[in-house]
């Protein structure tokens, strides 16, 4: 089925907001703008006239297809509510609409977060080292806060091994759902990860996609932490490893920055475990990227996914080296 266009969404969305959430005081949906960044779900800016004046909200729609199956936007809604209430600057969600007929999929509505995003290539960061150091400091502090935040929405685990194996199982399931041709590199890496799942010093909430472009900044502070759909519970070193691999950039938490994270949280940087999670994060990211091809083969209409799948496939080149490093640590 063809994706619902912005034009097709406006009238049914207005009707649904008026009928199903009268407390919002919606008088008119003025405009809907699709955000082009992000692939996993479709995000839109929604300009609305309410009884209290104009407002801008953000709508995230669970895609019919997509690169992170299986989707559960209702769970994302509950998690966002919980971490927002716990004091993290996650988007403030206020509506979950599970009727897929309104805009082409279940959706959540959240307040628009004011702020700007730093890209890894941002000239402001390369030209102002004091600003870069401040951004890195706040990046670390926010990650530590996430890791310390209690939650009751996501499945919890007793041990690091259990958490790691659960994530490997999720990756294996995603690969099975989306693999168009057998992928020996990924299948082998998953077997290695399953076999060598390490214990953890600590288990906590992980963001799962913690990178600079997923943070909003206002007045020098982080005003928003976005894109929580890969959040899970596990070893915090997994989020660190993510910043060194898929999320690599000016805030990669390695060397001095990793030490700062360790000093802030008390979590020891165990290179053996970090290496394990580098491999896991590479495998996870590669499977998600390759799912773009599956999406296109099954009705998806965003042609950028072809390029995403190709970039993701390139991640396979690193897996052999990461597996070898893991074996070396095990032998040491």
């Amino acid at each position: 089925m063809a994706e619902t266009t912005v034009e097709q969404m406006t009238a049914p969305l207005e009707k649904a907001l008026k009928n199903n959430a009268p407390e919002l005081g919606v008088e008119r949906v003025v405009a809907i703008e699709r955000f082009t960044s992000g692939l996993s779900s479709q995000s839109y800016g929604v300009d609305v006239e309410t009884g209290d004046g104009p407002v801008r909200w953000v709508m995230r729609v669970e895609p019919e297809h997509g690169v992170i199956p299986p989707y559960d936007i209702a769970r994302e809604y509950r998690l966002l509510r919980e971490v927002h209430a716990a004091g993290l600057p996650a988007p403030g969600v206020f509506l979950l609409e599970e009727d897929a007929s309104v805009v082409g999929g279940p959706f959540i509505m959240m307040h628009f977060i004011e702020g700007a995003i730093y890209r890894n290539t941002d000239a402001r960061l390369s030209e102002d080292l004091a600003l870069l150091a401040d951004v890195q400091e706040r990046f670390i502090d926010m990650l530590a806060r996430i890791h310390e935040t209690p939650q009751s929405v996501l499945p919890n685990f007793e041990t690091g091994q259990e958490a790691a194996r659960a994530e490997v199982a999720v990756c294996r399931h995603r690969l099975k759902m989306t693999e168009l041709l057998p992928s020996p590199v990924l299948r082998h890496a998953l077997d290695v990860l399953d076999e060598h799942a390490p214990p953890a010093e600590k288990i906590g909430l992980l963001h799962g996609d913690y990178r600079l472009p997923n943070l909003m900044w206002k007045d020098g502070e982080i005003s928003g932490v976005l894109d929580w759909e890969l959040a899970r519970v596990g070893d915090p070193l997994s989020d660190l490893a993510f910043t060194q691999t898929i999320g690599r950039g000016v805030c990669s938490l390695e060397g001095e920055l990793a030490t700062k994270y360790s000093e802030r949280t008390g979590v020891e940087i165990d290179e053996k475990r970090v290496n394990y999670y580098r491999l896991l994060e590479m495998v996870k990211g590669t499977i998600i990227g390759l799912a773009g091809a599956y999406d296109l083969a099954n009705g998806g209409a965003d042609l950028r996914l072809m390029s995403v799948a190709r970039i993701a496939a390139a991640g396979q080149a690193m897996m052999g080296a990461l597996e070898s490093q893991l074996e070396q640590y095990l032998e040491a």
Partner: peptide, 13 residues
């Protein structure tokens, strides 16, 4: 890799 559309990737990051 020859068939990667750089503009597609740039639009996502």
């Amino acid at each position: 890799n020859a068939w990667i559309c750089p503009e597609a990737i740039a639009s996502l990051t």
